[in-house]
Structure formats: C-alpha cells, structure tokens
Design a binder for these strands. Structure first.
Lengths: 220, 220
DNA sequence: CGCCCATCAGTGACATTGTCACCCAAAACG
DNA sequence: CGTTTTGGGTGACAATGTCACTGATGGGCG
C-alpha cells in the first residue's frame, strides 16, 4: 500500500528507494476523515507531515471570522507550515483541514533531523517544499493586495471546476477561498450570470462559458 | 572585522565557532551601497546571502506599479527568498533593496549544501530562517486581507519611528510600505493630523501623540 | 403530504478603499 | 531668479466591505 511512495513523491524531488525505505521504517501512518483539522493554532503537532493520499486545505482566519485559503497540499507534498510553527514559536492563526479522507506519513522530529542530515535527496525535498510554499504565499499576497475580485473569482471557479462543468459550493465558501465577504461574491456571480458566463442554483454553480471566464481570469 | 559573526547570528540559532570558521573559510564578502538591488526578478543569484551588516527591504510590486513591503532582513539574518527562488524555479516578482550600506556573506550553493549536511547548527539556523519568513508572510496576508488601513498605517508609523519622534518619509513611501495608493495615505494622515496625532511637513511626519497612535494600532 | 427550520442567497444603504484627473506648493537646480 | 522636479491636496467616481434585513430552498419529520 505504501510501495509507490517514490513515485508519489516525485513531484518536487524524487526520493530514491534507499531513502524511502528509511523513511518508512521510522514513520507512522495516520488516517483522518474529510473535515478533520490536521493542524491549527490550538493543535500544534510535534511531528512532520507528508501527505500520502488526499488533500489538505490550509487557510487563515481573522478575528472577525473571515477566512482566506492560502494553498492546498496535495498527495506527494509535505506540509511545512507545521515545521515552521515548531521552529519559530510564534503565534499564528493558520489551520489545515482535510478536504478529503487523507493518509499521511508522520515523522517524529528526531527522525526528521536524522534524515535531513544524512539523506541528500530528502534534504532537497524538504527545501523544495519550503520554497514552494514561500512562492505560494507570495502569490497570495500579490492577489490580495493588487488583484481584482472578479478576476480572482473567475480564476478560482475555473480551478475548482477542473475538468467538470459544475461546482458544488456556496457563495460563503467562495468568499472564504478569496478572503472576502459573501455579499461581494454574490454581486459578482450575479453579474457573471447576467453576462451568461455561469448558471446558478442553490449550492451549485455551472460554468457555462469557460472561455469567457478564462479571458477574465487572464487579468482582463 | 568578521570576528563577531557568532554573536551576530545568535538571533535565531547560534552558530558555534567551528561552524563559523568553516563558513568564513568558504564564503565571500560583498559590500553594496544603500539603494542597490540585492536580488530581483531579473537578478536571481546562484548563492546564498547572510546579512552581516545593514538592512534589506524585501518588497513585491504589481504590474500596475504599486508596491508592498513583505519584510525586512536585519543584520544576522539570512535572506531565504533567494534560496526559494533558486529551488522552485517559478516566476516571482519580489525584490530586495539595500536600505543601508550592507555587508553580506555570500555562500556558493555547493558550500551551502555541504554545510547544511554536515553542521547541525547551520541546518537549524537555515530552517529557522525559512520558518521566520513563512510566519512573516502569514502576517502580511492577514494584514492585507483583513486589516484596516488606519490601523496598519498607525502601526507602520510607530515601527518606522522607533525611538525617534520624526520620520523622514513621503506619503508615496508609506503607500509602498502598505501596498496602497498615495491618496489613501494622504487622506488618513490628514485625518490623523486633524485629530492632533501627528504633524506634517513636506517629506517629514512627526508623531505628536504616540500613545493615541498605539491605541489605534492595537486594533481600535 | 404538508409544515418547520436551518441554510443559502438577494438587496439597499452606507463606509472604506482604490482610481483618475487634475491642481498647487515646496524644494532643487540651473 | 525662473524652471523643473517632486510632494501633496482635492473631487468625482468605481470597487469592495459592512450591516441589517428579507426572501427562497430544500431536508427532515409529524
């Protein structure tokens, strides 16, 4: 069940068989159901997470209760924010929620230290993971500080839809993705609808004209 | 001149003498004048930076020409964004500007790899640096997405003033700090002035009532 | 089935922030 | 000096955020 670890983790920096074997020998496997909190301000893990299967949504919430999605951790990636929080013992208010049922590999800190020091490939993998998240956050800052809401919403709709045509989501959900208020999403969506780009019903959005949406998402 | 390296770099994780010696033996020292670009989209270094003296301002700019300050690198800290960019070969538009004359220690990548693998203390230092920046960026996201401009401006004025009473800066500069437009800063500053919190003259802001400013900065 | 209730979405009024097109004043510089 | 550059003020409007509502929908249950 864990045999294809190497393939899974090739996304950023492939881990050779030897490293894989070592990792598995010291790691623990955990399963969490969709909706579970993987980590959060009140739930700081003392171990490192490597996501084997599923998807984690990492978001940050304000005191006033608004929320914004920072990035998603996909299968084969590592969740470095937990590491960051362990090391820099500062307050933060990001949390990771399992979007699907997940399977993760948990590496106790001592084992992590050993692997990092002894395995070049593992080290590269970890640094790449950190770097990726830094870049992700730069993107979020850019979007929030300089982006326009209709553009960001169009982007997000296309991303959430993937190959499908319909998205099962609420306006409030989309607002939480983008860090804005529901009313703002409602306004823009009703505008999109008037222009024939989407169709809406309760808890469901259908992308009618993906081409036009993509034109909007590409900054225009 | 470089003897007190250890003390300098104790902020995050002290580097013992042995590590210091190794580092110095493989590193190069560079000097840059205030205002020089340390790194940027068109200027991706292939080495790691450790700031020995001075201060670097890391900011991101939008296509439209607006700008926001992400964080500052102080003496004794490392500038991991360059590392991140080297590893994750993605487009980004952050740049680092020397705010003062700076002295930096430049470590070629192979030497960096060797040190990371062989020196526990150095590894801790690097991970702590990454973590610190991730946390910094979380804070920026929080501010931009959920913060109010008057609060953010009051914070920044106090931070920029430090112990002093006056800040030599322009409205445009403050706008670039916070990622907004000059007009917005002008409006809020003239409001602060009406309320007797500050006094202004061309290129200069005096904090008249720091206590009241701090009340505003503390989210009220 | 038909009613109840929680959730989801729509609306109008208003505050804050961003954008644009200007103007004016102060310093910089010959 | 006068001219140029730079910093700052202003009014109108657009976009976004906030508030206090109302109406609509669908699931659960008697």
């Amino acid at each position: 069940m864990i045999e294809d670890w190497t393939e899974r983790f090739q996304g950023t920096a492939a881990l050779p068989r030897a490293v894989r074997d070592r990792l598995i020998s010291v790691a623990r496997i955990i399963h969490l159901g969709a909706g579970a909190q993987v980590f959060g301000p009140t739930n700081v893990p003392d171990s490192l997470f490597f996501l084997y299967d599923g998807r984690i949504r990492v978001s940050q919430s304000s005191e006033a209760g608004r929320e914004i999605v920072l990035y998603r951790v996909d299968a084969g990636e590592s969740c470095v924010l937990t590491t960051a929080c362990m090391l820099a013992e500062e307050a933060y208010n990001a949390e990771g929620i399992a979007e699907t049922n997940i399977t993760a590999i948990v590496l106790p800190k001592p084992a992590f230290d050993r692997l990092v020091s002894e395995e070049e490939a593992f080290r590269k993998f970890v640094f790449a993971a950190y770097s990726r998240r830094l870049i992700d956050l730069l993107r979020v800052v850019d979007d929030v500080a300089f982006g326009h809401m209709d553009v960001r919403l169009a982007e997000r709709l296309l991303a959430l839809a993937g190959d499908h045509k319909e998205i099962p989501t609420t306006h409030q959900n989309l607002a939480s993705e983008l860090g804005t208020a529901r009313e703002v999403i409602s306004r823009i969506l009703s505008d999109f609808q008037k222009r024939g780009l989407i169709a809406q019903s309760r808890g469901r959005i259908a992308l009618v004209d993906k081409v036009a949406l993509r034109r909007i998402a590409e900054a225009g």
